[in-house]
């Protein structure tokens, strides 16, 4: 079962130009681990706003590439943070695992 909505991905590829998609995917794959690290350190510091921003960016970027599940997971975290709730359990780990799968798939698509 694909983690990437191919119709979204192909629209992105077409509208930005086929020669550009590799660069774009790389920007996301480089950026995502930083965002996950930011989530972890924000959690440790109880920095709700920092956590929310990192989750927000992850949600937005994942959706851009059609990684809908990853985006939905990040959105849940963003919503919790918006409600001032940092009781996120192991959800950051789940996001990280989901990202690894998405990464593999995107590497194959670019």
């Amino acid at each position: 079962m694909s983690k990437i909505n191919l119709s979204t991905f192909n629209d992105l590829k077409e509208s930005t130009g086929a020669d550009f998609i590799g660069e774009l995917v790389d920007a996301f794959l480089d950026d995502a681990p930083t965002l996950i690290a930011q989530m972890r350190s924000a959690l440790a510091k109880k920095d709700v706003e920092g956590f929310r921003r990192a989750a927000h960016s992850m949600k937005s970027n994942a959706a851009t590439f059609g990684a809908m599940e990853l985006s939905a997971l990040a959105k849940e975290l963003e919503t919790l943070a918006r409600e001032n709730n940092l009781e996120v359990g192991n959800r950051v780990d789940i996001i990280e695992a989901e990202f690894q799968t998405v990464k593999q798939e995107l590497e194959g698509l670019k």
């Binding site: 660069e23 774009l24 851009t64």
Partner: peptide, 12 residues
Amino acid sequence: DNKVNRMVLSRN
């Protein structure tokens, strides 16, 4: 502030 957004928008 999001690099991916900047790239997607400007490229489009």
